[in-house]
Simulated scan of single mutants.
Amino acid sequence: MRRPSAILCWHFPKVHLSPSSFIITAQDCPKPVPGPNMNLKGNDIVLQEFPDGTKVTFTCEVGYQSAGGSGVSTCSAGNWSPVRLQCERKNCGALEAVINGDITYPTSTLFGDTAVVTCNAGYRRVGRETIRCGDAGWLDRLPVCEVSKCGPPPAIADGTFYPEKEEYEYREVVRYTCQKDLTLNGSKSVSCSEDGTFTPAAPTCINVQCEAPNIDNAEYIAGSLNSYKYKATVTHQCRTGYMMIGQSTSVCEIDGEWSPKLLESPNIDNADFTSGSRYPYKYKATVTHQCRTGYMMIGQSTSVCGIDGQWSPKLLECKRKPNNYYFLISAS
């Protein structure tokens, strides 16, 4: 049979504690420090000291909203209990679409950010270009995009335009005409551009008159007579014994010049055409001339049209024979 374990007994001295030993002295709290993006609620924001046991409430500042957690804090023995409130920026969300325009958000749609409104080409904005996200949503009214308009186009001397109106919309076209027999110099039509002006520049009415054709050794065969206005045409042909250089038909252009230049005959004095190509003279065309009686040839009788549009060798010349020409030949 086992013997019972030994029992040890300790003697503790008797301690006498007074009631005052368990009293914790109350202590006021200083002004609480708010967390990010929050403020004290109500009149507490103006106080500097808070008695022990005071409870204060924090709320999110303007432009921010609660993302969870309690905003209540209690003063206890000079310290404030932790604040669990979380504040985040308010989101205004996307704006409604702008007809004939576009909205961009350079940063985001959060409180303090801006939206930028631009109008399509040919439209102008009525209202503010930028709108700011505020505490209660987007501030200012959404602008509208109106079609660009032009006033009447420039009037021109001796001319008119149509249609005639007080106002024209973007891309609307106006056409000019000249009075009498004058010619439009420039674009006959202009259009209302996005900046409210007409482009290109308005034309002018001018009197185009080409000089009367005066071509040696050529004859008129068709086209305009007496009056040579813009786009008038004349056609000539060379007389017998002469060849054409250039084109037979020319047109009077806006600058008062014939285009292409009026034809010319190869005016070889005292020579006659004997064989070869006729107008028009293209690459490798040939012409042959001979001098008339009493004249001697300087150069070659036959020339070829080269790639550069020049005769090679140059067209011959016919010089009058000297009185002793035959004597010189027989002596040689």
Rank of each mutant, 00 (worst) to 15 (best):
Asn43Lys: 11
Asp44Ile: 01
Asp44Gln: 08
Asp44Arg: 01
Ile45Leu: 09
Val46Glu: 13
Gln48Cys: 02
Asp52Pro: 05
Gly53Pro: 07
Thr54Ala: 12
Thr54Cys: 03
Thr57Cys: 06
Thr59Gly: 04
Cys60Thr: 03
Cys60Gly: 02
Glu61Arg: 13
Glu61Gln: 13
Val62Leu: 10
Tyr64His: 03
Tyr64Val: 00
Ser66Phe: 05
Gly68Ala: 07
Gly68Gln: 06
Ser73Glu: 08
Cys75Glu: 02
Cys75Val: 03
Cys75Ile: 02
Cys75Gln: 02
Ala77Gly: 10
Asn79Lys: 15
Trp80Val: 04
Ser81Glu: 11
Ser81Arg: 10
Val83Ala: 08
Val83Gly: 02
Leu85Arg: 02
Leu85Asp: 01
Glu88Trp: 03
Arg89Trp: 01
Lys90Cys: 06
Lys90Met: 07
Lys90Asn: 06
Asn91Ile: 07
Asn91Lys: 10
Gly93Arg: 08
Gly93Asn: 09
Gly93Asp: 09
Ala94Cys: 04
Ala94His: 12
Glu96Val: 10
Glu96Ile: 10
Val98Pro: 00
Ile99Ala: 13
Ile99Glu: 15
Ile99Met: 07
Asn100Thr: 05
Asn100Tyr: 14
Asp102Met: 11
Ile103Gly: 00
Pro106Val: 06
Ser108Met: 07
Leu110Gly: 01
Phe111Tyr: 15
Phe111Ala: 00
Thr118His: 08
Thr118Phe: 04
Cys119Ala: 08
Asn120Lys: 14
Ala121Ser: 12
Gly122Ser: 07
Gly122Trp: 00
Arg124Val: 14
Val126Gln: 13
Gly127Met: 06
Arg128Ile: 05
Arg128Thr: 12
Ile131Asn: 06
Ile131Asp: 02
Arg132Gln: 12
Gly137Lys: 07
Trp138Cys: 04
Leu139His: 09
Leu139Pro: 03
Asp140His: 13
Asp140Phe: 12
Asp140Pro: 03
Arg141Met: 10
Leu142Val: 07
Leu142Ala: 01
Pro143Tyr: 01
Val144Phe: 07
Val144Met: 11
Pro152Cys: 06
Pro152Gly: 04
Pro154Trp: 08
Ile156Phe: 09
Ile156Cys: 10
Ala157Asp: 14
Asp158Arg: 14
Gly159Asp: 06
Thr160Phe: 14
Tyr162Glu: 13
Pro163Ile: 08
Glu164Thr: 15
Lys165Val: 01
Glu166Ser: 15
Glu166Val: 07
Glu169Ile: 09
Arg171Gln: 15
Glu172Trp: 02
Val174Thr: 05
Arg175Ile: 13
Arg175Asn: 14
Tyr176His: 11
Thr177Met: 11
